[in-house]
Simulated assay, not measured.
Amino acid sequence: MVKVAVFASGNGGNFQSIVENTKNSNLKNYSVELLLVDKEDAYAKKRAEKLGILCYTVIPKNFSNKKEYEEKIIEILEENEIELIVLAGYMRIISSTLLKAYENKIINIHPAYLPNFPGKDGIGDAFRSGVKETGVTIHYVDEGVDSGKIIYQEKLAIKDGWNLEKLEEEIHKVEHRIYPDILNKLSGKIKK
């Protein structure tokens, strides 16, 4: 079983979906060992508490630079024997410090069908552009913004009459359905 750390910055809906799917299904290739958040008020912390998952809050401004911040994260990950990092609404660019320590072991979910609409507002950008479809992408993390090798993608048609909130709701449904399954398949391929 692959030991996973989930990183989040806000709500934690994907984090909760990933954890609950290991308890309520045949997804047995991974175990969520901890949640790491970068904001004191992240709602994901409350979800971790309810789910009985260890939570670390590591605030970037408490460090003199990004390298020190990521070295602290690596220390936590190593103490907990983490093998795979799963970004779930973690709103920070990962730098070379963490990327080198976990090369090809960091994945992200992005709420758009990449390469379209990378960045922090994939859903809003897609909605405002007027496209007829968007989707969800799961990819490896590299030093770019949503530019890593794609693991899995699923399209979503944007129906007439949908507002931004409805599109967000539908994107999150897709995310919560596919992320645990793809994570499980990927974890089954990781060599110990």
Rank of each mutant, 00 (worst) to 15 (best):
V6N: 01
I151A: 03
G124V: 04
G10F: 00
V86Q: 07
K185T: 08
S187V: 06
S31V: 14
P60H: 13
Y30T: 03
H172W: 12
I82H: 02
L156A: 01
N163M: 10
L51V: 06
G12Q: 00
L77I: 08
E75T: 10
I158M: 09
Y152I: 10
E75H: 13
I93L: 07
S96Q: 13
L87Y: 06
I158Q: 12
K105F: 04
Y90T: 00
F15G: 03
I85N: 03
N14Q: 11
P118K: 03
I74W: 01
T22G: 07
A48S: 09
E133S: 14
K23L: 15
A88R: 06
L99M: 02
K72N: 15
L156E: 02
V32K: 05
I138Y: 02
L183T: 02
G119Q: 09
I158L: 15
E83D: 15
R92W: 09
H110F: 04
N65Y: 05
I18R: 09
Y152H: 12
D142K: 04
I151M: 03
N65I: 11
E133I: 08
K100L: 12
L36C: 07
L98C: 09
Y152N: 10
Y179M: 05
A5N: 05
H172K: 08
V32C: 03
H110E: 00
Y30R: 02
E79M: 13
T22Q: 07
G89Y: 00
I106E: 01
I158R: 00
I123M: 09
P60C: 12
Y43V: 09
A5V: 07
K28T: 11
M1D: 13
I59G: 08
E83Q: 13
E70Q: 06
N65A: 12
D38F: 03
L27R: 10
L51M: 11
G161Q: 14
N65E: 10
K173G: 10
K45R: 13
N184M: 11
N29K: 12
G161H: 14
H172Y: 15
L35P: 01
W162G: 02
P118D: 09
A42W: 02
D142T: 00
